[in-house]
Design a protein around this nucleic acid. Sequence first.
DNA 1: TATTGTTATACTCTATAACTATA
DNA 2: TATAGTTATAGAGTATAACAATA
Lengths: 157, 157
Amino acid sequence: MRTPERNATALDLVLELVVLLNEDMTRALARDGLTGSRARLLWELRSRGPCTQKVLADALAVSPRNITGLVDALAEGGFVTREPHPNDRRATLVSFTRHGARIARNLAEGREQLAELLFATMPDRQFDGLVDGLEALLARLRAELAANTSSTKGGRR
Amino acid sequence: MRTPERNATALDLVLELVVLLNEDMTRALARDGLTGSRARLLWELRSRGPCTQKVLADALAVSPRNITGLVDALAEGGFVTREPHPNDRRATLVSFTRHGARIARNLAEGREQLAELLFATMPDRQFDGLVDGLEALLARLRAELAANTSSTKGGRR
DNA sequence: TATTGTTATACTCTATAACTATA
DNA sequence: TATAGTTATAGAGTATAACAATA
């Protein structure tokens, strides 16, 4: 039987992981002149190709107003351009500049390199155990969030 | 031999965990009228007892100016008070109100409950594998951050 | 002279509401 | 009338720099 203390310690590990991962990624993004939110937008743009701000707002689950600001900053930084939409004159198409496309590739590369840094030297047995545990954790969290999101309102505590 | 794709997928699991955990905690804090930064301050205050803003600034690794703002908000919300420091008239002591102390206990309880939610029903074998993997992951991340922080300046990519 | 906390200023992320141009 | 994106306004977190009071 496991003690609550051991469970609490395991949660501490997860939370430290969150903090360190965040620091590492923030630092790496800053080297490219990016923030987390702006990088997320580039990431979406990369997987979707040129798209409207409305599409980006829905994809990132933020307000249209917020997208205006992020695209403003990314355009100013030379990462993206705003083009008129060919069919709908209300809309604008956000597209990569050459520089933006290069940086987006860098983001993808950086992520691969992070994955290798974290996992490449890990023995298979350990890796499998970690993945198995992470999947179990995610299943519990998803269930919890679904329960709390769906109006029920209660939640822990 | 593991493929880069499997490593990338494992990183995706970790990143999804980060996102969901963040959502869950943000939601829980909002129920107590708190944000992440304000809760972190309360958390420090709980483990240290009444202390100066300078101490809090160092503990949370943010600017003194930032602490002024957080304490302003927490004082306005009735979580903490500012008292004159007995020995040093430049400094102020930040202390819990009754309500703040109660909420801080709630935070600790909520964390225990989250740990139980995530781990209590997890088989020992799976739990051990997860903890083992997490520790290995953390070791790599700490090393990476230390390398990148210490002036070397290079880093991945 | 050094330290504590504040005011002043600024940047980022975020939201809602009102408005413009277009469908 | 509905939609895309903007301006206007606001709140939260963060930073640096200048300044006050006190050590």
